[in-house]
Amino acid sequence: MSNNDYDATLSYAVDIVFCIDVTGSMTPVLGTVKDGALSFHKRLEEAMHAKGKAISQLRLRVITYRDFADNAADAIEASSFWTIPDQIDEFEAFIRRQRASGGGDEPESGLEALAVAIKSEWERGLDRRRHVIAMFTDASAHPLGTGASARTYPAGLPSSMDDLFEMWGYATSQQAVMENAAKRLLLFAPDTNPWNVIAADWNNTIYLPSRAGEGLEEVELAEIIDTIANSV
C-alpha cells in the first residue's frame, strides 16, 4: 500500500515477559532456562522474519521469583520493560546474574509472579500487539495470597484463581487486564495444579509439561518458537 510520508505496513509490536523460578530446585536446569530466555527473542525474530512478519517494536521484561512463605525478602524481583535492541545489555545482565537458591518447601510463589506479569505495562498504542508471558518452573504453586502480609508482597494482586482468571480474561469477560487478541501464555511447568489447569482452561496457552531435572529440548523449543511466531 502506498503512502507518501507514512509507512502504514501492518507490523507487530511484541512484548515478552519471562517469569523464572529461581529456587534451589531449579539448579540443574536454570542454565538451560537462562539460555532459552536469552535466545528466545532472537529466535522469535528470526522465525517471524522467515515468515515475512515485521516487528515494529520488541520489549522484554523479566520477573524472577521464589517463595513468600519461605523468605519474603527475596521472593520476587521484577524489572521494567527493556526495548530491544537498545537495552539488550541490561536485559542480558539481569538474566545472567540470576542464581538458583532458597524456596523452602515445594510449592513456590509462581501465581504471584504470573499475576505481576499479567499486570505489566503492556504496549497499548501500536497495531497488532502481542503480549507473551513465558513461565519457567519445576514446581507447583502456593494458593494466591500465601505470604500476603509481607511488606514485599506486591500490591493489587488477585486473591484467588478465579480472580486471576478474570484478569487473564476470556471471550466475553469485562474485567480482563490482558487483550484477547494480543495475549499468549507459554508454560514450561510440571504436570500439576495449577499449571495443568491453567493450560487446559485459559485461552491462548501453550504448555510443555516439564519433569524434574530435565531441561528444554531443542526440538521442543523450536516447535514452541514456531507456535508463537506463527500465531503472531
Binding site: R184, N203, Y207
Partner: peptide, 8 residues
C-alpha cells in the same frame, strides 16, 4: 505430542 495447551 508433549506440547499441549488451548492454542494447539
Amino acid at each position: 505430542n508433549k506440547i499441549v495447551g488451548t492454542m494447539r
